[in-house]
């Protein structure tokens, strides 16, 4: 069952070819310009959105977007769909909680530690799963991430994770996260710049990696792994590196999420959480880097507004099915298709 045909969900957008290296450099510079502009424009958001609740939703969307672009990166460049990235997000969050609360580390160091923990899990899981593809990959990432969940809610893990109660973060009043005390860190308006900078930076890095020679290698592996080996390329190493990179981005999201909310819920590693981000990314569309981000903000919006009676998953499940059946490529993919059609029509 080695279907090498690219799936519709992850089919790459047929980007306009940039034949000359010069065109490529120009494209990179334009992209970087857009990234800087987006970064700066985003910093103004707290001055426009004054409502604390709305602001907190934006922060949540931004942090969950880190998880989603990690998943999206793997899907776009390797055609691998992961249900396991919640593990890195969650492991990083617990890492932060344990380092601050149990060991009395400063929040800044703890966030660094959290990212290392999450990335470490990505290395271990990556070694086990990147040889597989398609369904094998999907099931293995799900199973291994659920192993972490099963461990985290064990009674014997209570001193570390708080088991089913979750973990409340506490650290000394005079300790700060990059200058913000605990009270300020939990204030979405004050925390926003950190979340936003993290997202734009990570998105830019992933974009640059995707455009690099390494990105081309990944594309080759996605398109035809066997021919890559017969062309002299190692295919295990690059896949592992890409997996770990995407895991590291998700870890950063988890670490910041923990520090911002001051609490790590056991659901963070759960089955539905794993699905949520994948669904958000899928609905947004894998074809473009911003697809998963769009999807995640939509998801956070839906969670805040349509979650009556706890029926959110009724709607997300439905949204997933509808998108897969009727608009593979997600929202951004459909917009892109529309755009190309309009442009072709004009010519």
């Amino acid at each position: 069952m080695t279907t090498t045909a690219p799936t519709d969900v992850v089919s790459p957008s047929a980007a306009a070819p940039e034949a000359s290296p010069r065109g490529r450099l120009k494209g990179t510079l334009v992209g970087l310009g857009i990234a800087v502009a987006t970064l700066l424009a985003g910093l103004a958001v707290p001055y426009v959105v004054t409502d604390t609740y709305r602001m907190s939703l934006l922060v949540e969307g931004t942090l969950l977007s880190l998880l989603a672009i990690g998943i999206g990166f793997l899907a776009r460049h390797l055609g691998l769909i992961s249900l396991g990235h919640g593990a890195f997000f969650g492991a990083a969050a617990y890492g932060v909680g344990i380092a601050t609360t149990n060991w009395g580390w400063s929040p800044t160091t703890a966030v660094g530690f959290g990212v290392v923990v999450g990335t470490g899990f990505a290395v271990v899981m990556g070694l086990l799963v990147v040889r597989s593809s398609g369904f094998g990959f999907l099931m293995l990432t799900l199973a291994l991430s659920q192993a972490l969940y099963a461990l985290s809610v064990q009674t014997s893990a209570r001193p570390l994770t708080g088991a089913h109660d979750g973990k409340l973060l506490s650290y000394d009043r005079d300790m700060t996260f990059l200058g913000l005390a605990q009270r300020d860190v939990m204030n979405p308006g004050l925390f926003w710049p950190m979340a936003w900078i993290a997202l734009t930076m990570c998105a830019t890095v992933l974009w640059l990696v995707g455009r690099s020679r390494f990105g081309t290698t990944l594309e080759g592996i996605r398109e035809n792994e066997e021919r890559m080996r017969f062309s002299g390329y190692d295919t295990f190493g690059p896949r592992l590196v890409a997996f770990v990179l995407s895991g590291a981005v998700a870890s950063l999201g988890g670490a910041l999420f923990a520090i911002n909310s001051g609490y790590v819920s056991p659901d963070i590693l759960g089955f539905t959480r794993a699905g949520d981000s994948l669904i958000a990314a899928l609905v947004g569309g894998f074809g473009l880097l911003v697809g998963p981000i769009v999807g995640t903000f939509l998801f956070v919006y839906a969670q805040a507004n349509f979650n009556f009676g706890g029926n959110l998953h009724l709607f997300t499940g439905m949204a997933l099915i509808l998108v897969l059946v009727f608009m593979p490529g997600g929202i951004t993919g459909s917009l892109q298709k529309l755009y190309h059609r309009l442009r072709r029509g004009r010519r």
Binding site: T217, E219, G220, N224, S231
Partner: peptide, 26 residues
């Protein structure tokens, strides 16, 4: 080196990109 009976190319890449990719490695 070998070629394949069932055409084995890199479908979604441009012809130039994939030839350059393989050329770089070899």
């Amino acid at each position: 080196s070998r070629s394949f009976q069932r055409t084995s190319v890199f479908g979604a890449m441009t012809v130039g990109d994939q030839l350059e990719m393989v050329a770089r490695r070899n």
